[in-house]
Design a protein around this nucleic acid. Sequence first.
DNA 1: GTCTATATTTGGATAGAC
DNA 2: GTCTATCCAAATATAGAC
Lengths: 212, 212
Amino acid sequence: MDTARPVPRRRGRPGHDVDAVLAAAVRLFNTHGYDATSMFDVAEALGITKSTLYHHVSGKEQLLAMAVDRAVDGLFEAAARVRDAETTATVRLKELVRSSVLVLAQRLEFVTLLLRVRGNTEVEQHALARRREFDALVTELARQAQAEGGIRADVDPATAARLLFGMVNSLVEWYRPERGRPEALADTVVQLAFDGLRTIDTTTDRGDQPEQ
Amino acid sequence: MDTARPVPRRRGRPGHDVDAVLAAAVRLFNTHGYDATSMFDVAEALGITKSTLYHHVSGKEQLLAMAVDRAVDGLFEAAARVRDAETTATVRLKELVRSSVLVLAQRLEFVTLLLRVRGNTEVEQHALARRREFDALVTELARQAQAEGGIRADVDPATAARLLFGMVNSLVEWYRPERGRPEALADTVVQLAFDGLRTIDTTTDRGDQPEQ
DNA sequence: GTCTATATTTGGATAGAC
DNA sequence: GTCTATCCAAATATAGAC
């Protein structure tokens, strides 16, 4: 299908492609809220008119759908990678947390938007359903990790999964790519999640990632 | 029989007071979003008309202001209580986490709304400013706890505070008062935050022991 | 305290010219 | 691909009667 040239490229003036439109829209959605952002605002940010904007996308909801898909796809790709890893559930859970932080950092604006979706339209409900699917994956991983004795068994795995990813997801509230490598942050999150805030005690070894 | 009648009572029909209006508004704001909720929706939920609603409150933004104040006041009351406690910073930090979970549970809908505020109006900016103030308090407590050796010192205290309360705040996404005592949840959160997910140990290891 | 209008603005979306 | 002009629906808020 994708023969050749019609690939739209970023040029000096207008000539926008869907990606550029999406990027501008998502930025505005996150800054001012989805509802508070008008199609006029999106068009203005791109330097075009509303009519021209509608020439590129079918409507406001489609912009939202594309954005949350991009976020959710990233998380599921991370989940698929750890699923195929041949190691303990505990290590896979750690790896999933780590990967999720990286996905969140790489697709920050898309994930931010995803996490603010409440489920009032079909598009939003679909996004929520996929989030629940991801949650179920994490919960199952936590359950297995408990079964193998890798993590504490005195907490409901669903609760643990929620609190764990509650911490991860809260990154969208303050993480900014310009300061700090995401890998370092991912390590911090994994350490805090698995070892807690308590003082490092030299008699224990955490077996964490070699990546400094 | 109250001393005087000006205290508006919950009655069969209308006769609403500001608290009832606020409760209805906040529920709708959380369910459908602040922007997506019209003053008509609020009025309809109360069984009155828009005009009557405007007789009770000065406008939509005032409803938001009252709601977020109620949330933020709760958090600062908790902070004031731990500040006066005569104990280590580490214990006070734990207590603040614990109290915050309880405040969050008690004023769930108000806190939920607070955490969704983005700062696009004066009211929202004021709410954000108070949240930052609270964050600073937590960060300072974390710094003191590190200084006294109560919590690990290899993590920036601001980062620790954010991740810690990221976990706490994520409760609004799934906690429902009808299932489970908030005190039990608060204990779980404190345990996870301070001791981590790792197996309660005596002899720690990496967790790849054979099952059980 | 509650109602029935209604003023005014803004938003999503389309038609059709260039 | 971009524009001007416009339609139509919905939202905040007010006026003024009962």
